[in-house]
Amino acid sequence: MIPDQLTPGQYDTVYNLLSLVIAAQLFTALFLVAAQPRVLPRYRQALLVSAVVCGIAAYHYFRIFSSFKEAFVTDAVGGEGTYTQAVGASFNEGYRYVDWLLTVPLLLVELVVVLALARKLQASLLWRLVPASALMIVLGYPGEISDSDALRHVFGLLSTLPFLYILYVLFVELTRSLDRQPPAVRQTISRLRILLFASWGVYPIAYLLPLLGLDGSDAWVGKQAGYSIADILAKALYGLLIYRIARLKSFADDPAFEAAEEGTAHEWPAATRDRGASTTTVA
């Protein structure tokens, strides 16, 4: 439930976190687009999906940010007074769920695509993971907008079932295919799955804050903080790990590509030193 009032500290906390998420998602998306040539063509689709995920999140956080500023206003000079809900305006929590409905399935697509598995196995994983992730989000929304603790419990439990199924597929089914991956890639994928588990675990905690003894504005601000931090971890940081996997697999697949990339990485500093030395000599 949206609180009627926020203290200046609570308002600034939500304001700054929303701003942080926008920056993290937007510039991660730009980086992933710019980094396309740094991996082999077969892995660029995974980076593109990662960039799309972060771009979608950045767009929705712009909308969330605007909704927040319109919903809470103060007449105090310098913004030092209590912020109250503006007449005729309300914070739209639905933006988050629209965002998750689009991005959570794509997060799983990223992982499956970057592994470059056999087409049959890839299709099998996607047909199970994508519908389960969409169902998880759809079942969570009625509880999110409900004022009833009972309904919040019921829909929270229902949305947990597809979440547990996704974890089963990621940690049991997917593990069977990891033996074909390079050792460094296996380690990174293990970290990626742990990141998913840890960051997705923040969402139900934030979702249940009103049922854990917190109420009013404290619970609401805590929920917004939890969702925002989890979104940075589950999208921006996740996308950077997908990029790392794509780089490692590119190097393992094509030693010549690795040599060219490593040569490029060392060429620029050397050229800079040469130019610096020449400049010093002229001076």
Rank of each mutant, 00 (worst) to 15 (best):
M1Y: 00
G9T: 06
V14E: 00
L20K: 03
L26E: 02
L32E: 05
V39H: 11
P41F: 10
L47T: 04
L47E: 02
A58T: 05
H60F: 15
S66H: 10
K69H: 12
E70N: 14
F72G: 06
A76K: 00
E80Y: 15
T82I: 15
Y83G: 01
G94F: 04
R96K: 11
R96D: 11
D99T: 10
L107K: 05
L111P: 10
V112Q: 02
L115Y: 03
L115A: 14
R119C: 02
L125N: 08
A132L: 13
I137L: 03
Y141K: 11
L151R: 12
L151Y: 12
S159N: 12
Y168D: 01
Y168N: 04
L170R: 09
T175L: 10
L178F: 01
D179C: 03
P182V: 09
L192Q: 08
L192K: 02
L195H: 09
L195E: 08
L196E: 00
G213Q: 04
G213R: 08
S228C: 12
I229Q: 05
A234G: 01
A234R: 02
I245H: 07
A246E: 08
D253T: 08
P255A: 03
A260T: 06
A270W: 00
T272D: 06
R273T: 09
S278C: 04
